[in-house]
Design a protein around this nucleic acid. Sequence first.
DNA 1: AATGTTGTACTAATAAATTAGTACAATGAA
DNA 2: TTCATTGTACTAATTTATTAGTACAACATT
Lengths: 134, 134
Amino acid sequence: MVAAEKTANELEFLLDQSSGVPYYRQIIKQVEMAVADGRVRSGSKLPTVRSLAVDLQINPNTVARAYNEMEIRGIVNTQQGTGTFISDKKIELTEEERSDILRSLVRSFIANTSSYGFVIDEVIEHLKVLKEEM
Amino acid sequence: MVAAEKTANELEFLLDQSSGVPYYRQIIKQVEMAVADGRVRSGSKLPTVRSLAVDLQINPNTVARAYNEMEIRGIVNTQQGTGTFISDKKIELTEEERSDILRSLVRSFIANTSSYGFVIDEVIEHLKVLKEEM
DNA sequence: AATGTTGTACTAATAAATTAGTACAATGAA
DNA sequence: TTCATTGTACTAATTTATTAGTACAACATT
């Protein structure tokens, strides 16, 4: 195979040991980010537990833990013997449940930004800019 | 003093023991929320370390820790012998620093909402609604 | 069926976070 | 100055989180 790899990996994982953020969380965050900005799509295969563990020089179970949490949150689907894939986001929530979750996330976020002295308009503006960048 | 208390407290603290969220974080969150939706303003006095500790039936140091973190984040100012007050939000950051912080908060937030399957437009809409409610 | 791939279970070692006990120090009011 | 009030320091006990070691189980491919 000389041409481009079918499984050419859009994701590049990097661990910051001195950040204080646990490895498994860093992995999750990096996947979330990649999903958020479209670097990976539904069905994309993630590196295998072992290969990523070797890459990052950590224990397979640490990778597995990250994958597990993402599975629980519905971000990925895992199939033994096959691999772990970005999920289809088939939403099995009612509109009301969805709305409640979003409300809760947004409120918490605003409480957070407020504590830094930002007002809601600034936040909205920034979001709009970010939207354009994507 | 028969009339309304000068220090009538707009904040009502409540701890959820079974939430898994540590007490000091719950306290911080509740203050942040109160600031975000205007229930408290600059200069408002928080309950004393001891009184809140008694109220919530926890150790004074746990309350103190919450107050301390908020002090560090600039949410409150503390003066020994006097009390702890919601700070003036005198911002001593450059515009660039402010912008960087907001960018980082927003990105992280969007990564999070995306992982729940929300798209950025939904989020912006929700923020606008929340803004009207305030 | 046999083999190699994938994720998983279970345990344990370690590190970090959380809370509490207790005594202290700074401030303000009398 | 004296006293009551406020936050603080320091230590330690405990719990929780994080990571790793090791062996296992499910699946796909041949």
